[in-house]
Nucleic acid binder design. Structure first.
Lengths: 219, 219
DNA sequence: AGAAAGGTTTAGTTTTGCCTAAACTTATTT
DNA sequence: AAATAAGTTTAGGCAAAACTAAACCTTTCT
């Protein structure tokens, strides 16, 4: 049973995103896939009959081992395609999500592995998210949000949350990119905005809502 | 109205393949998409309601201008992806068709044009078939079948028909590739098989069924 | 021209996947 | 503990897309 519809894959993906290996409420699931409650209940029944999920009515839904494997495989494809779109085709990192959402459903084992090879077996996607490997292992998610750092620390940006187009526009405006290094020069105790100084000496302020979506490691 | 299902696109593609701008019988159409008659009749009705085809009941179906534009756009995507799979990912030319059949349905204008750029705006796909251009123009299909050449002519292979896996295997075995040049050294009047001599002096025989699927231009 | 053959369309069913409205469970509040 | 609120599932529809069986045009053959 290796044949799944796009809809099924979307529910599996949502289940993984929301609950990982744990249980998820049907309402949250419906919400995530952009459907109404009854559609989710029904979809979940189909998935259960294929052995991809376990359901306890009125309680929640959980991925089975098979479901988990499938979820990670779809996520692998999604993030490999995002990497391809940015690295090879020159897309901006804010543009790739909806396209990868289509590409992740292409079925060809050969294609995935050849694509991974072509991209030199990347471990992180353009947003810094870990790419599940062919064996199902997932590299650890690195970094912590900027506001967890204390004044004076040196840090390197390693990951950003997908917080919408405007967020990315702002990142581009400030020339914030993965791998860039900064010193945290000050923290406002009033609105928890922070000030970063780049290596070239330029410094700028980041609102709390910006900094909470930017992850870094200390140097 | 820019939103079409995969099924719809497959019917449009089939219609274009079978009839170009002319009319096609519903039976032939059904056959081509791997469905039964009634499914085609029904599908065609849906397409007509979207203005993509014109139907004369019991007579035939024809693409409208919109339908024709869509068909060429899908073919463009299909052949660009085939080119990508062979040139960049290292697939063999016999493997790419089924994968491109999935990729051709990905919807993103930006993606198609960025992909074309990345491949240096190719004019022919890995089988030598012309790739419809962004403006809808289609480069001429080049070459004529090998058995149309006369003894002694020098020729260059420019295109092969997709005649199944075994055909491609045989091509690979004989190291026949697009762009390679040969001299037609003899023609059997018994079974119309032909003998080719490569530039390195090696020569070999090709059955009629092989040579009729190989297209070349004379030098 | 009339009849048989062949291909096309209609009729009615199935599955996936979504919806709204109503019924039902669980949790919370008084 | 009863009532209400919140969330979930059932019931009943609808559209896409496929199927089989039956009815219907066209063409062809005698």
């Amino acid at each position: 049973m290796n044949n799944h519809t796009e809809s099924e894959e979307n529910y599996i993906k949502a289940l993984y995103h929301l609950g990982g290996e744990g249980a998820v409420a049907s309402g949250a699931l419906a919400n995530r896939v952009g459907a109404k409650g009854p559609s989710a209940t029904q979809a979940v029944r189909r998935l259960a009959s294929k052995g991809l999920v376990e359901v306890i009515p009125y309680k929640g839904v959980k991925l089975t081992l098979d479901g988990l494997t499938l979820a990670k495989h779809i996520l692998r494809k999604h993030r490999l395609w995002e990497t391809f779109l940015v690295e090879k085709l020159g897309f901006g990192w804010e543009e790739v999500h909806p396209i990868a959402e289509q590409l992740e459903h292409i079925q060809s084992h050969d294609l995935v592995e050849k694509l991974a090879d072509y991209l030199d077996s990347p471990v992180h996607d353009p947003h810094g998210d870990p790419i599940p490997q062919a064996d199902g292992k997932i590299p650890p998610a690195t970094g912590k949000p900027l506001q967890k750092f204390s004044q004076g620390s040196s840090l390197k940006v390693v990951r950003v949350e997908d917080a919408g187009t405007d967020f990315f526009t702002q990142l581009d405006l400030l020339e914030i990119r993965l791998g860039k290094e900064y010193t945290l020069t000050s923290v406002s105790s009033f609105d928890s905005s922070i000030q970063l100084q780049a290596e070239d000496g330029e410094s700028f302020w980041l609102s709390h809502s910006m900094s909470s979506n930017i992850y870094a490691i200390s140097l």
